[in-house]
Amino acid sequence: MKNLKLKLARMEKDLSQTELAKRIGVTRQTIGMVESGDYNPTLNLCIQICKELDKTLNDLFWEEEDNEP
């Protein structure tokens, strides 16, 4: 599942994937794969991304259930 929240948060900060990746110390490919939902990052990487984008884990990585009773 695509992580549009992450993409939006990154764009709000006016950062490219390459710039965000450089700040966190990962490759651009990794950020691209997290955004496209092809890679599930570890909690450590999630926290690093959140800190860099001034967001919480809930803001970027929590999926609301649509089918809750």
């Binding site: 110390g25 990962v26 490759t27 490919q29 990794t30 890679y39 990052p41």
Partner: peptide, 8 residues
Amino acid sequence: LDEMQELA
């Protein structure tokens, strides 16, 4: 390598 590359 970063974590994704390590996994790959």
